[in-house]
Amino acid sequence: MSINTLVVKQQVIKLSEKTIEKTKEANVFFSGIGDFFLFLWKTTRETFSLNFEFNEFLRQCFQIGYKTLPLISVTGLIMGLVLTIQSRPVLVDFGAVSMLPGMVSLSIIREMGPVITALICAGKIGSGIGAELGSMKVSEQIDAMEVSSTHPIRFLVVTRVLAATLMIPVLVLYADALGILGSWAGANIKGSVSFVLFFNQAFRVVDFMDFLPAVIKTFFFGAVIGLVGCYKGYSAGHGTESVGKAANSAVVLASLLVIIVDLIAVQITDMLL
């Protein structure tokens, strides 16, 4: 056998090995997508089942909503403050400083408030759910639930997804309000504007159709964060390492999906309005 034939043979072997490896990776990727949609289907089916776990749902609303308030308060205030401090010099240059309240409130209500709040929630809530469910999976608590005639998806997943879907819009509205408050505080650092005048100017430019699409998309943000957190936790492997991985990948995937959902929502809003 000539040297050339040997080299070609080796190259073919290498190529086939790489092809097999890539095929396996693709298999894992597509089966992951399939698993996610199966999980989504099971969650949807259990959402409409008769035995709704109302007490657990309320507990999750408290965990997701109330316990995230301090973080959202700080973020909302700083968001408004920073946006005002950054925009003011440019508007002063153009002699348009009177437009500052309207500009800031519009950007907070339409985009900054929903997206920043959702990203913060993806970090806090997504990782929390992912780690909690992941550790329950690893320590066989989910199996224990299943053998004691409790549907784990109904008890653990539906309650968390619904709580996130309902609580994140509330948190976004709260963050919007604090953002505008922070903006008023920012406007008063280098200037002087009364609270009433600032809010009058802020809401003069905002109409219902600025507000509505922004609120609607936050329900989807909530659903995505809850679902991804639950899915990652629920599908955690064995051992404590997988709990960390579940929490981490929940944050990464939820944040990415929030941005993608935002892009789709903006496109739809743009087409409709």
Partner: peptide, 11 residues
């Protein structure tokens, strides 16, 4: 079913 780890709900 008694699980090896006990599987008590830790919350």
């Amino acid at each position: 079913f008694l699980f090896q780890s006990g599987a008590l709900y830790d919350s």
